[in-house]
Design a protein around this nucleic acid. Structure first.
Length: 451
RNA sequence: CGGGGAGUAGCGCAGCUUGGUAGCGCACCUGUUUUGGGAACAGGUGGUCGCAGGUUCAAAUCCUGUCUCCCCGACCA
């Protein structure tokens, strides 16, 4: 992509209603534009990152045997009345009527419609097991949206559901999903922790959260520095007989200072603020019984399907990555979820050799399948460097007279850059003759290894 | 829903106390010079001061109402 043919913008000042650093930087870098409270437009760069996150999720869900579907966002009240939740679901469900006065809602979740739909499609044990997922926009009229994409009212979510004949098979499906989650988060470059969670209202026998440690986390967790066993504040407070009323980070840190891990018995506990990115549940038959979702077994008897449910907040992944992986100069998104992996910068546009070389390298990137943007604007080099740091391209390739004199270009890694100076510690000179092959090697080395 | 803050140019802000023809920085446009770390100079565009009503000779400024956004609490990916 040539910058001059693209559409993106950068801002020096963040809008005043962007509070967290990640949100302010994404706004400044041209990823996002708030539309109204809790509702955002994804601009070209932001959408590229979202698509990459979705692509990684699809890869690992597909590998785990889950099959993609797309359910409607606008749902008739019929479904919800049948599931009994039309009355129960509170104001978070946004309801409205069509021209004939029929009731509808914007789906806050999809279990009800899915179970309802499958009742007529699933009949026999021979159809089981299976697993369905979708990546969809959900709408919850939250009491208080906040922190940009962290808690929006409209948000993109991956939700998956497993359907098995019995509890044992369902637990096996759960484990497959759990492994897929670990891999996909690592592929994105995120340091996720698994937390033993309370199943809460969804119910069921087993539930885990996938969280990252972050100052904008909405929950508190206790983690063992040795074995890594992590539990949420409620579980930890039960284990240590603490008063759940006093559970802020400081109080919990104080209370648990020096205590040992409840699992490995030797490690020391540490307290963190954490943000939930994914949550998996082994539900059992609660929903299938309610929805009359049954299958006929080999013995001819009807039995309820055993379900599991598996969610990931897609937009939230981008939001928290922007928060965690950034500095004062801008974003530093992990390579697999950055909007572009490489930015080619022509240090001047007034030198024919520089321009023609930059053009050539860009074309080589296209031919080699390197995910590159070419900043071919007729602006000072400093503007391109500053914008490059703000957007956080993992690598910036500088084509300039200096390098050309020795037949090289500079490849600068974003995380090695020193703000405001030209003393990047992680800059290497790459011979122009070897460019695309060398660049590919550099990119591959930079990717997190999964497994 | 309870508590707190804010709406003035695309973005960030001043002006409001003490009414008197709306201002600054950045961005944007034109020209000249500049060109490997957010250039300089000169000129220029752009605002029904959130909206409605009221007080007044006169309202961004005072009064009343209203809408919106943000922050802190209970819920959630």
């Amino acid at each position: 992509m040539r910058y001059t043919k693209y559409f993106t913008t950068t801002l020096r000042d963040a809008p005043k209603d962007a509070d967290t650093r990640g949100h302010a930087l994404m706004t400044r870098a041209g990823f996002l534009k708030q539309s109204t409270s809790g509702i955002y437009s994804y601009l070209p760069l932001g959408l590229r990152s979202i698509r990459k996150i979705e692509g990684i999720i699809r890869k690992y869900m597909d590998e785990a045997g889950s099959v993609e579907v797309l359910l409607p966002m606008v749902q008739s009240s019929d479904v919800w009345i049948r599931s009994g939740r039309w009355e129960v679901y509170g104001k978070e469900m946004l309801r409205f009527q069509d021209r004939s006065g029929r009731d509808y809602c914007l789906a806050p979740t999809h279990e009800d419609l899915l179970a309802d739909m499958l009742r007529t499609l699933v009949n026999s044990y021979s159809q089981l097991p299976f697993n369905l997922y979708q990546i969809q926009t959900k709408f919850r009229d939250e009491v208080r949206p906040r922190f940009g994409l962290i808690r929006g009212r409209e948000f993109i979510m991956k939700d998956a559901y497993s359907f098995d004949m019995d509890e044992e098979a369902s637990l096996a499906s759960y484990e497959v999903m759990r492994q897929a989650y670990i891999k996909l988060f690592h592929h994105m470059g995120l340091d996720v922790r698994e937390i033993e969670a309370d199943s809460g209202e969804i119910g069921g026998s087993l539930s885990q959260e996938f969280v990252v440690l972050s100052d904008i986390g909405e929950d508190i967790a206790v983690s063992c520095v040795d074995c890594g066993y992590t539990s949420n504040a409620e579980v930890a407070s039960e284990a240590f007989n603490l008063d759940a009323e006093t559970l802020d980070v400081e109080a919990l840190s104080e209370a648990l200072k020096g205590t040992n891990c409840t699992r490995c018995k030797t490690g020391i506990n540490d307290v963190w603020r954490v943000l939930e990115l994914g949550h998996i549940f082994n539900i059992g038959t609660k929903y299938s019984v309610a929805a009359n979702l049954t299958y006929k077994g080999q013995d001819g008897k009807d039995r309820p399907v055993h379900m599991g449910s598996y969610g990931i907040g897609v937009g939230r992944i981008l939001a928290v990555a922007a928060q965690i992986y950034s500095d004062d100069a801008g974003l530093q998104l992990p390579i697999n979820i950055a909007p572009f992996e490489v930015c080619i910068v022509s240090a001047t546009t007034r030198d024919d050799e520089v321009v023609s070389t930059a053009d050539k390298l860009y074309q080589q990137c296209l031919d080699a399948g390197i995910d590159a943007i070419y900043d071919d604007r007729d602006v000072r080099a400093g503007v391109k460097f500053a914008d490059g740091e703000l957007v956080g391209y993992p690598f910036v390739v500088v084509v300039g007279k200096r390098g050309l004199a020795s037949g090289t270009v500079e490849v600068k890694a974003r995380n090695g850059t020193k703000n405001g100076t030209d003393t990047a510690t992680d800059t290497i000179a790459v011979p122009i003759s070897d460019f695309p092959a060398e660049m590919k090697k550099i990119l591959d080395r930079a990717r997190p290894s999964v497994n």
